[in-house]
């Protein structure tokens, strides 16, 4: 019998181990009305690996409206001083800064986790201990890059450098 530690308490019908009978036994895997369902989000207890994976997609999707800001900023600079001043004021407003904070974290998160993905695609770091190590390292790096860029931004703004 397969041990599935990560599955929450579930009705017997969708237990992955299919009850006490073997795969082909009565009420086991293969009976048509009691087939094991593919484990999905609500079945698994969240783990670092799965949470980081969802976040990769979510930050990727969240970044696409962020491209509007990039294009708006460039177009405003191209349009002239007045349009650019308006853009800077919008981005510098409270709402603008909150959005920018979210987007900067999403950017650094997607970037750092994307590097993990590239290593996996090359066949490295796929063992479970490596996944956890690179996962925590990535979370730390994304937070550090976000914090670092904001510290740099505010330091430049106040003329510390």
């Amino acid at each position: 019998m397969i041990q599935v530690n990560r599955v929450r308490n579930l009705p017997a019908a969708i237990r992955i181990d299919g009850g006490s009978k073997g795969p082909l036994g009565e009420g086991g895997f293969m009976s048509s009305d009691n087939r094991p369902l593919s484990p999905h989000l609500q079945v698994y207890r969240p783990q670092l690996t799965s949470v980081l994976s969802f976040l990769h997609r979510m930050t990727g999707v969240a970044l696409t409206p962020g491209t509007l800001l990039l294009v708006y900023w460039l177009a405003a600079a191209a349009a002239g001083p007045e349009a650019f001043a308006t853009a800077q004021a919008l981005i510098g407003s409270i709402i603008g800064r909150v959005l920018l904070l979210g987007w900067s974290f999403a950017l650094f998160y997607h970037l750092c986790n994307g590097i993990r993905h590239l290593f996996w695609d090359a066949g490295y770091g796929l063992e479970l201990p490596d996944l956890y190590r690179s996962g925590w390292l990535m979370v730390f790096a994304a937070c550090a890059l976000t914090l670092g860029s904001w510290v740099l931004g505010y330091a430049m703004r106040s003329g510390a450098w």
């Binding site: 600079a77 001083p81 970037l111 590097i115 590239l118 890059l145 860029s149 931004g153 430049m156 703004r157």
Partner: peptide, 28 residues
């Protein structure tokens, strides 16, 4: 494109952070 974006986004984020609060002429 992901590979290309690693240096490009880091460069852009650093540039924008350095120019934070800078006026039109600096950015231009």
């Amino acid at each position: 494109s992901a590979l290309a974006l690693i240096p490009l986004t880091l460069w852009f984020a650093a540039s924008v952070a350095v120019m934070s609060g800078a006026g039109y002429e600096t950015v231009r």
